[in-house]
Design a protein around this nucleic acid. Structure first.
Lengths: 204, 204
DNA sequence: TAGATTGTTAATCGATTAACAATC
DNA sequence: TAGATTGTTAATCGATTAACAATC
């Protein structure tokens, strides 16, 4: 009977990881679920429940060892393991992602970047050689790239995504507002910036 | 007894809106909840439930008028009303957001942009005059800006956010991985790109 | 009228929280 | 041992779905 782990639990695990790093910096050696949950502004029950999906990491009466818990969460999230990613579409957003430091510390390695503009193809951009998007399939295959960040214009999104599928990409982080239709085998996460803003504004 | 409308319902409303535009382009005049839900890959019950929070927009036996439904949803989301936003921090991500066409069509008007770099302050960037971040408070107040996009480096996030609060900003779309601590009155939406990617990779 | 499809109620599912026995 | 805090079970909350009476 395989436990199904909620997506939200995984998201919170990353939050826990970040704060454990911070606590370590501060020299905090040990913390109870109650104090940690207070810092994170969640309930202590939720924190313990989230951890319990993966094992027992605390000590009754004493709480959690910050260093040990950090390591356990790193292991769970696979932060030690490297994942090869490519960025497809080097408009402003693609460039922003390319320059984003946060990815590297979580084990993501930008292995290739693609565009369709002759002004970019073949040139070095922030130290990365830009490939023609036509070469997506061989480049992804040769480099065993698993994850693609899709930052092309909406019109091109579906067709490029289809090509990613053919190239053997396993997961796509989709920044376009297009609902991609691909095989169920590919994991897709949609990041819709306009939707985030609109939701926020609605609740004003 | 005020009905509480789930945040997810609002998110889906925007999805409905986009597909209604698309259906209109195609010349579809009418659609049933079943066919529309099929297109959106959600359940028909959910679609009808979402709409029912706001009123009755369909006709039994006949479905929904595409044009009328689009207008109703636009009214609900306030897509007709303009909202003034500012972008604070003009690194790659700030620039990407500045160039993002999708906002304008949803009624967001970029009214000011801010940075702390002498190379940017006072210059025009993509047609917008860049202000010194020190002037945030007067500029926001004078222009009655309601929403701020926070794209500064992590280290500066909390302090800049505090200043946004003092300036009377009502909602912040926070692109930094920092948990902002501000008065409860300010609406905060966190967009954590690294977390999105990490979550995706975990589920591989 | 007969067929289709809405709007809504009740049932289900899943995630969060409260409570507490186990135990360090 | 006594106090503190975990890990887990059961209760609660909220959101999704199924079902169907209302009705165009």
């Amino acid at each position: 009977m395989k436990k199904i782990i909620p997506r939200k639990t995984i998201q919170r695990l990353l939050l826990y990881y970040r704060y454990l790093l911070f606590l370590l910096q501060q020299g905090t050696k040990n913390i109870s679920s109650t104090s940690f949950a207070d810092i994170l502004e969640i309930s202590a029950a939720q924190l313990r429940k989230d951890l319990s999906y993966f094992g027992k990491f605390g000590t009754q009466g004493a709480g959690y060892d910050v260093l040990a818990l950090r390591d356990e969460i790193a292991k769970i999230l696979g932060i030690d393991k490297e994942r090869k990613v490519c960025i497809v579409g080097l408009g402003n957003l693609g460039l922003a992602l390319l320059g984003y430091k946060g990815f590297a510390s979580l084990g993501f390695v930008v292995t290739a970047i693609f565009d369709n503009s002759p002004q970019k193809i073949g040139r070095k951009i922030k130290g990365f050689a830009c490939y023609d998007i036509k070469e997506l399939i061989p480049v992804v295959k040769n480099n065993k790239i698993e994850i693609a960040l899709l930052t092309v214009p909406s019109e091109a999104a579906q067709e490029v995504a289809r090509r990613m599928e053919d190239a053997g990409i396993k997961a796509i982080l989709n920044f376009t507002p297009v609902k991609l239709s691909l095989s169920k085998k590919i994991k897709i996460n949609n990041v819709d910036l306009a939707a985030e803003l609109k939701t926020l504004s609605y609740f004003l």
